[in-house]
Design a protein around this nucleic acid. Structure first.
Lengths: 239, 239
DNA sequence: CGGGGCGTTGACTGAGATCAATTATGGTGG
DNA sequence: CCACCATAATTGATCTCAGTCAACGCCCCG
């Protein structure tokens, strides 16, 4: 029993039980660590990466740009997330990935992933499941983009980030680091930065949240969840 | 060489080469066929299905309902799609699935999927890849919902459906069966049925499409793609 | 032939975008 | 420690795309 288990092992184990041998080969395969500064592309649309990555520390996001220069943010990633497992099977990137903050990654060469998954069906299943949860999160965002108003959508995003960070021990007292500009929040929710500002003010004035600088404190979790109609089922946290 | 290969085998083979043995066990595992009428729920949010399904004929869609009774359609499915592989690994449904038209399904009991994927890493990889393409399609829809206007979003949806149906031989002359009401199109794109009606008229008057009843004919594929800024990369059709 | 679902159109409304300043804030160099 | 700069947050005024409401027509099916 590690006191601080490998984040990848911890995450995959939360999806499927692993044998001690599987844990060990996972640790071996992800020994290579890489550090990146904040606000920097890690992969770009159209590229063909040769590694997948596990986020160990920091925050990243996926995005697409339209020809008119608009940006849609497709997901945010927190420590423990395997944010580009898909590049192992889908050769060409259909979106870009960038850091929000300085980040530490564990590098998983596709070659190693192939070997791991062919030899250990349990690892394959756990990685597959990780990508399915990722897809479930994307579907939930579609509901925000299509059918929730600005206040509901913002509340929902905040609930989700608190829940996901809490699952990796980074939301003490429902307070989290939120290294997002209002423009980035807008690009995630399909809103303008101006409207995000006004919507944050609404939530603040309703005493649901406190948000200053990069720190979010949820003041009234129950009411925030109610505004968002937040049901964490889609995060598939409890097995 | 089958003249009319099993749709599941054909689909998975387009993702990863399979051995003759793998093809055979896939055929064996999906012998059970089920038929359903149109406009009927196949699975509901919160349920724990014991089968996955391959769509053989007809069209289905995923959706979520908000507490206010609004509906967001999350995806459409065409023959060959494994539209709920996720239920194999994520016990509880986070959305519902319904038929648009009368449908024929091949039933894949989770038990069989587990055995297949544990014994045949190639099948596991192909099924995994199918769910990754599904996620890529969801991400592309997020761009429509968040950052495309009604005309761009509608054109993009039509391009996607034509491209996906064409890949399974069901879009001769860029003409397809489109068994969607304008309300359903709106629920997919985050628009009202009224606005969908007006947007269809725009595309019709611009002589980009002809749409009567359930038949869509693309009159000017190049211009329709241009309006949508449609780049089929995200469908990952060519290997 | 009558009714319900769907498509179509018009009139009005509204949530959120855009434009344009102005005011924090945080990092930097002196 | 402080002036300086760029970036981000905030606010007000105006505009617009798309929603809502309401009516009517069409068509299929019983």
């Amino acid at each position: 029993m590690d006191l601080q288990p490998h984040p990848l092992v911890r995450r995959l184990e939360s999806y499927c039980p692993l044998t001690e041998q599987e844990r060990q080969v996972l640790r071996d395969a992800s020994r290579e660590i890489a550090d990146f500064e904040g606000d920097r592309d890690l992969v770009r649309e159209g590229e063909r990466p040769v590694n997948s990555n596990v986020l160990l520390d920091g925050m990243t996001f996926r995005y697409r740009l339209t020809p008119e220069g608009k940006r849609q943010i497709l997901s945010f990633h927190v420590p423990g997330d395997v944010f580009d497992a898909q590049s192992f099977l889908l050769a060409e990137m259909d979106h870009s990935v960038a850091t929000l903050t300085p980040c530490r990654l564990a590098v998983l060469p596709h070659r190693a992933v192939r070997e791991l998954t062919e030899t250990h069906p349990g690892i394959a299943r756990a990685l597959w499941k990780a990508t399915l949860v990722d897809a479930a999160i994307a579907r939930e965002w579609m509901v925000s983009l299509g059918r929730r108003d600005a206040q509901q959508a913002l509340a929902h995003l905040l609930c989700e980030l608190v829940a996901r960070l809490d699952a990796v021990g980074r939301a003490p007292q429902r307070s989290i680091e939120l290294p997002l500009t209002q423009t980035e929040i807008g690009d995630a929710l399909g809103l303008s930065n101006v409207h995000v500002n006004r919507t944050i003010r609404e939530l603040r004035e309703a005493r649901l949240i406190a948000l200053q600088g990069r720190r979010l404190v949820v003041l009234d979790w129950e009411r925030l969840k109610a505004v968002a109609a937040f049901n964490p089922r889609y995060l598939h946290h409890d097995v």
